[in-house]
């Protein structure tokens, strides 16, 4: 647990003033889920991803998505090796432990699809041969929030594959002043110390599954899911997959809080990050506000 706190402190040095989001990102990692960061360019998305990789000693790659990228550009391709007179796989950038998929919404749906499928299956199939992706395997994807020209918005069904979506937003003024005075962030990142090994992280993710949730808590999660489904303001309710994700994220959050059981506050803490991007408003309005209001109206303890 101490290691986790230390990890938070380390990453906090470079992503200033964003403790909450940082904790969520860490939770997402521990829950073995993929993270989507939605922000305007230059808000420190890349820095966050890089810092996480550094602190957990993860093998890290970054891919800038463009519209002319093909699935093979990410997954890899079989090539003929003249020396061995045989085809061999040239691994794409996806074969890494932490993949930063920058501006994922610039890629065509097909390329997005290929990445998302790899995220889901945690393996890549090329020419009929399946290859496992390394463990752990995390994707931190970034996306621009506004519809910019030449972007392909991720469809809802694909968004479901990201456990969480967070946005960093502008830093607080004093933090920003520090930032401006601090100079080069990249060198800061380079100077971060590894706190937990990647094996340690795997162990942590296993521990998440052991965090216990009572029937009463599971009921609460179910009530929340049910509320999204019966609420007319949403186009569709949360899927069962989202429900599982919510519980898992709550477990990870509880573990970071130093508990081996989940309490409703854990669920509430991760609720927005898990639920918001999967819900679409039927008639406009802020999905964030609606998801928050659900949290206010769904009884924590059964009536």
């Amino acid at each position: 647990m101490q290691a986790l706190t230390k990890a938070l402190a380390q990453v906090g040095q470079v992503v200033l003033g964003k403790e909450e989001q940082l904790k969520l990102a860490l939770t997402c990692l521990m829950a073995n889920g993929h993270l989507l960061i939605e922000d305007l360019p230059g808000m420190g998305k890349t820095t966050l991803a890089h810092a996480l990789a550094r602190v957990f000693q993860l093998d890290y790659r970054r891919v800038q998505f463009t519209s002319d990228m093909l699935p093979a550009d990410i997954l890899g391709v079989s090539v003929f090796d003249p020396k061995s007179q045989d085809f061999s796989l040239r691994e794409g950038p996806v074969f890494t432990q932490l993949l930063l998929a920058d501006e994922i919404n610039r890629a065509t749906p097909k390329t997005q699809g290929a990445l998302l499928e790899a995220m889901e299956e945690r393996q890549v199939t090329l020419d009929g041969v399946s290859r496992k992706l390394p463990e752990p395997f995390f994707v931190v994807a970034t996306q621009n929030p506004v519809d910019q020209a030449g972007t392909f918005v991720l469809p809802e069904s694909q968004l479901d594959r990201f456990l969480m979506r967070i946005s960093l937003g502008y830093p607080a003024p004093e933090v920003e002043r520090n930032l401006l005075a601090g100079g080069d962030l990249r060198s800061l990142v380079r100077n971060l110390k590894a706190v937990i090994s990647s094996e340690g992280l795997i162990k942590l993710t296993r521990m998440v599954d052991k965090v216990r949730a009572t029937d009463e808590l599971i009921d609460y999660v179910q009530r929340l899911l049910d509320a999204t489904r019966s609420d007319d303001r949403f186009v569709a309710g949360l899927s069962p997959r989202a429900g599982l994700g919510l519980l898992k994220a709550a477990r990870a959050w509880a573990l970071i809080g130093g508990r081996d059981y989940v309490v409703p506050e854990d669920v509430q803490a991760v609720w927005s990050a898990v639920a918001e991007h999967r819900l679409a408003a039927r008639q406009g309005g802020s999905v964030a506000a609606m998801t928050q209001s659900l949290l206010q109206s769904v009884p924590v303890v059964r009536r």
């Binding site: 891919v63 002319d68 990228m69 093909l70 550009d73 990410i74 090539v79 950038p93």
Partner: peptide, 14 residues
């Protein structure tokens, strides 16, 4: 990574 595979110089690679 990210370069289009169509633009790879396969002959040279071979």
């Amino acid at each position: 990574p990210g370069d289009s595979l169509r633009r790879i110089d396969w002959k040279g690679y071979a």
